[in-house]
Amino acid sequence: MSETGVTTNLYDRLGGAAAVDLAVNNFYRKVLVDDRINYFFEGVDMERQAAKQKAFLTFVFGGPNNYTGLDMRKAHTHLVANGLNDSHFDAVVENLGATLRDLGVAEADIAEVAALAETTRNDVLNR
C-alpha cells in the first residue's frame, strides 16, 4: 500500500469497505448464474459464502487483510478433488471484472484487481 501512496491507493479509489459491500452481492449473483462454475456453489450456506467472498474482494481490492493463502487452500481442497481447474478460476476472474465494469470502475483498476486475484491462483488450485 505504501508504495502507491495514500491518494492513489486502489482500495480507496474503488470506494473501500462500502464498495466491497456493494460489489459482493453483484459478484455472487454473477457466479450463481454462470453455468461454468455455479455447480461448485450448490448447497453452500449463502451467508457464509458471501462473507468469504467479501474477504476475497477486500484482498483483491488491495484492502486491509490477513491473507496467508492457507485458508484459501483448505477451502478449495475438496473442490480441486472434484475437478476445479484453471478454466474455473478464469471464469471467476471474468465475473469479477464484469462486476467492476458494471460499477463503472476504470479498466486500469480492473486490471490491477485481476493481477491481485492472480496471486491467489495457486492457492485456490492447491498447487
Partner: peptide, 8 residues
Amino acid sequence: SCRNGVCQ
C-alpha cells in the same frame, strides 16, 4: 480470523 471486519 480476518481482524478487519470482513469475515464476521
